[in-house]
Amino acid sequence: MFHMAQPVMTDVYLSHGFRDPLSVRASRELNSLWRYKDCVPTFVINNLRRRYQRSVLGFFWSLLNPLLMMTIMTVVFSVFFNKEPRDFALYVFSGLLPWSFMSATMTSGCGSIVEAESYLKKLPVPKLIFPLVHVATEATNFVLSLLALAILGAALGLPFQLSSLLLPLAVVPIVAFTLGITMLLAVSTVYFRDIAHIVAVSLGGIFYLTPILYPVSAVPERFREWYQFNPFFQQFNLLRALVCDGRLPSVQEWSIAIALSVVALSVGTFVYLWRERDIVYRL
């Protein structure tokens, strides 16, 4: 009746708490993440399952939702603005899908650590699990929305761009960038609960400052050079080049996107490790 298997893991935990140097904490965090690695897929699957609980189409909605959204937008643009769908669909959606992923993940990811209070106060789980789960869940939906874009493209009779095969390479920096920023925001929100609202409003504004619905050429010349400082634009620029323009992004474009991701991840990791010990006291 009673399983008496020896526990697999024997661990040694030595903590000087707030006086541990960064290197010690970083390696402990890595150990801990490795030990709790099974939490991430388990939670992602459960999140997706819960989202579509009791719905007839279930997980299929992840594909259907962006497909319907894009179809409606295509109809609206072509009927009300007299645009030819083939001209704008790929351009708009190759910007809009990654933008939606980045902004939605960052906005709702602010609360990922705060909302995990009930776990964090009862179990010694690494706090990083929760932003990771959040980003992974949204990234799954993002990848499915790209699949929906392919379906839409085929339905509109657009030729398949060979360069689209490199799409996974363009998705990686987008996800890494989003993860870094989400880590930063999730930790900051523990201290300043107003951040979630500030982020939501700011991203709402940035949406209109980013060439998603309009081409870069529509921007007055004197402002145009500022666009290279828009990290969101730089991130989906790769994806847009591959899917919409059918060209390989230049070395410079790759480097900017990757550098931004590395910076975001580093800042996120540093802030997390800096505050990690204190978070449980602030929930």
Binding site: L14, S15, H16, G17, F18, R19, D20, L120, K122, V280
Partner: peptide, 9 residues
């Protein structure tokens, strides 16, 4: 769950 402010565990 709680890292100590002083001393060690």
């Amino acid at each position: 769950i709680y890292p100590p402010h002083e001393g060690s565990v």
